[in-house]
């Protein structure tokens, strides 16, 4: 498959314009990119965990989805999608439907790393033929930027505020991609929106067209929570990848592969300084924070490289 963004953009949009996500939000861009990876002749049922995405794209009576869509709660999206997929298999077996459907579920990091982890783990273990896409914006943005287990250390979130006795979040980010890979599912990948969108497109296509449960973790920056200018989404994504804060890789049938290695690994401060949530790290006397952040990213990156073939 030769990927050409222009041709892909000529496909009929499955995620309609006019949704109510913020300007500069990564979630909507991620959803468009993933849904564009569906072959045009295939139908899909798109599902959501309760999230910014859900409350901005299906406000009664308007839906932003051209495909069938279902949402029911915050913590159950994977199990619910498994129910839809099971119904598809049985109705097909019974001759009640004949079209091909794909099942793509989107949840934020709160609904995936935290409250929905059990439901996701169960659905992955049971082997439903579905793709779960986490759009990771590293905090509970829908309720007002509270920390999640996906929030990185030092980030200023509303439940880990920076103060005279606090430097922001204490703990490092949970490595969810590795946790899902440990389920032994056929395809797991980390991606984000870069350049001509080839990386996210190819990974989404592979996830959608690999039989069995597949998982994509998409870094999806949030201009409100991360405090960057709304024009800067693409640059923030690029810096996350080139600093190795968000490495791009995939795990195919248990084999780990890096899908991108920066020619020059940039210092983590290049990524941090663009965002208001890390502003306190650049105050005099706080140099140790940047040092520790750099050490952590370096360690994770070396471990990942050692794991990849």
């Amino acid at each position: 498959m030769t990927y050409k963004l222009k041709e892909e953009l000529n496909k009929k949009e499955r995620f309609a314009q006019g949704h109510r996500l913020c300007a500069g939000c990564g979630a909507g861009v991620a959803v468009s990119a993933v849904l564009r990876a569906l072959d045009e002749e295939d139908k899909a049922v798109v599902s959501n965990a309760t999230s910014c995405l859900e409350v901005s794209t299906f406000i009664y009576p308007d839906t932003a989805y051209e495909d069938s869509y279902i949402h029911s709660a915050f913590e159950n999206a994977a199990a619910m999608t498994g129910g839809v997929e099971t119904a598809y298999r049985v109705l097909k077996k019974r001759g009640k439907i004949d079209e091909n459907f794909k099942f793509i579920c989107f949840g934020g990091d709160g609904g995936t790393y935290d409250i929905g982890l059990q439901s996701l783990s169960g659905a992955m273990e049971r082997g439903h033929d579905m793709v779960y896409v986490c759009y990771d914006n590293e905090a509970y943005m829908n309720t007002g930027i509270q920390r999640s287990s996906a929030t990185p250390r030092f980030a200023d979130a509303t439940t880990t505020p920076v103060g005279t006795k606090s430097y922001g979040k204490i703990q490092n980010k949970k490595d969810l991609t590795a946790i899902i890979a440990a389920h032994g599912v056929p395809y797991v990948a980390q991606t984000t929106m870069l350049g001509n969108f080839r990386d996210i497109h190819e990974k989404a296509h592979r996830a959608i067209y690999t039989e069995g449960p597949c998982f994509l973790n998409v870094l999806a920056p949030c201009p409100r929570g991360w405090r960057y200018g709304m024009d800067d989404l693409a640059e923030i994504c690029r810096l996350a990848v080139d600093t190795c804060v968000w490495p791009l890789y995939e795990v195919v049938n248990g084999k780990w592969h890096l899908t991108y290695e920066p020619r020059t690994k940039l210092p983590v401060s290049d990524f941090l300084e663009k965002q208001g949530r890390f502003a306190h790290m650049f105050r005099p006397g706080n140099e140790w924070m940047i040092d520790e952040a750099q050490q952590y990213v370096d360690e994770k990156w070396e471990n990942l490289k050692a794991r990849c073939e």
Binding site: I70, S72, A79, M80, T86, A87, Y88, V90, Q118, A123
Partner: peptide, 27 residues
């Protein structure tokens, strides 16, 4: 000929039924 989904909790049992029923199945 029913598909049995041996879920990991009752919360997921009801979630499975919601998804399946909305999809057009008897759940």
């Amino acid at each position: 000929h029913t598909e049995f989904v041996a879920v990991e909790s009752e919360h997921s049992a009801m979630s499975t039924c919601i998804g399946a029923s909305a999809a057009g199945a008897r759940a």
